[in-house]
Every structure is written in C-alpha cells, then in structure tokens.
Amino acid sequence: MNAIIAKDLSKFFKPSKGKKKEKKSKQILEKENNLICAVDNISFNVKYGEIFGFLGPNGAGKTTTIRMLTGVLKPSNGSITIFGENVWKHPIRVKQIMGNVPEMANVYLDLTGIQNLNFIGEIYGIPKKERNDLAENLLKKFELFDRRYSKAKKYSKGMKQRLLLCMALMSSPKILFLDEPTSGLDVQSARIIKQLIREYNKTGMTIFMTTHDMDVANELCNRIAIINKGKIIGLDSPENLRNLKQEYQAIDLYLINDLNQKEIENLSTIKEVRKIQDHYHIIVHDINNGIFEIIEYLKSNHIKIKKINTYEPHLEDVFVKMVNGGG
C-alpha cells in the first residue's frame, strides 16, 4: 500500500541569463540542449503511515523533488500519484489531503499566530467554529498558545517554524511534506518538532521529509532515500543502510600484553587487524559475534584487557561514502 508513487521523475531547468554564473556552479548535468537537470529520472514509493526521509547534500535535488510532489513545480518527465490521485491531473483534490512546510517558508508576519491558522483554515474550507478550536488545540500542542495574539513578526525562528507546522496540520492532512523541518532551529524547538512528528505519525499520518541532518533522519525515518546530483543512490531503512558499510563495524582493543596478530586474523568474524600506536583496531563482519569471539580468544590466551571500544557504522559514514562515489 503506497501513499506516494513517484515514477521516472525528472526536472530540467533552463539556465537563466542573470543567474548563469550561479547556476553553473550548481548545475548537476548539462544536456545537449543546455538544460540543467535538477532531478534525473528517479522513482520511489512511500508506504502508508511511514516517515520517509530524503537525504542529500545541498543542491542534490531534494527541494525540487518535494516541490514536484506538492504540486508547486511541474515535472519535466514522469508521474506522481498521491493516495491514488495524480498530482497534476487533480491538483486540488491532492492538495486537500496534504500539508506542506516548504524550506525557508514564512508565516504572514503581520498576522497573529491564530490569524495565520484561521487564514489557512479558511482556504481549506473549515467552518469558523471548528477552525478556531482546531487552531487553539494546535497552538497548545506546539507550545504557542500563550503567544497566539502576538504578531508573527515578533516570534523567534523556532516559533515561526512551529507555527508553520501548525498551519500545515490545520487541515488534518493524510500526508505531511516537510522540507528541512529542523534546519537552523534551537534545541527546544527541534525537540518539540521531532516529538510531534513522531506523535502525528503514530496516528497514521504519512510523513515525507527532506533533511541533511543525519541524526534527524536516523532518529525519525522508517526509510531513507539518499539523493545526490539528482539521482537516488541508496534507498532502505537507516539500519540496512548502515549495514551496507561493514567496514565501519570495528573494535578498538587496548591490551596489557601483546597480541599475535596473525592468530586473531584467523577468527571467523574478523576481517582485518591493524596495530595503531597503543591499541589494535579490529574490523569485524559482525560486531556482536566478533566481540564474543575476541574475548574468548583473549581469555584462552591469558591476555588481559585494559579497555575495549566498539564502533558501529553511522549513517553519516554511509552518506559520505555514497555521496563521494564509494557507494
């Protein structure tokens, strides 16, 4: 069951005269007809009720993709279906079931918090009484209720971002699009947003988010697509993506006695042993079995341990490796 089906999506831009210099550095792929390819023939599905992360460096095509999904930019090629409806054939129907928080978006600064929410509620055709209650509940949830009558221009960046999320949630959407939701926020606002993303997801809401923050992706997403130069170069759960890079599963062993390096290399779970200054860096196939095997070996050879550290692959290592072409 898929909430989003994106098939063979591409987006080309004509290089604009005034921005030629800027675009040249950003350009990903220049076709024969001088078009800049921001998104290059990508396909993916997002399942109902999952948090799907789109991870990539700046200029990778994340924002262009989310803009195509939300009906802001028309794809040059390919099709997008959201909850069974084609985004470009039935835009109003699709937009009725989605909430969107674009990157660097802004609230209406001269309106108060509650006026911003009421304005969006009016666009979605929510009756006045209902939208007032809805707005107040959202403001309470996002810890903005005390400032509901303050003009949004007096809000901090974190408060504005929370208000934007409230605006996206006013229509009780089935699917929520978040473009860099925690980018540049203070710890408290980021924490509130992450917690509420999890809460809303538990109620069955599908969430599609772009980020370049590995921790956010690792913490929140059920599945992650890594995009670079307009192409998806990896798509799986954070755990499976991490496991793609086995060389990052390692044990640092600090010993009192010396070790027979060749002997330990013969153990089944050991991949490679390197002596680095005062310790051994042991790369293993499987960290759990590896650590037991090493301890058994050390015990049987009466070698005493001073200190032991384990390293599991981090999403960031996988990301860097994939983006730099080692994927």
Binding site: G71, P91, I92, Q96, P102, M104, L164, F177
Partner: peptide, 14 residues
C-alpha cells in the same frame, strides 16, 4: 520574497 507564495500554491486553491 517573503516565502509565503510556495505554501499558498501548495494549498488547495488554483
């Protein structure tokens, strides 16, 4: 410039 247009366009209005 105020970055309000993109969200407005992603609302269910033409």
């Amino acid at each position: 410039r105020q970055k309000t247009l993109e969200r407005l366009i992603s609302c269910p209005i033409s």
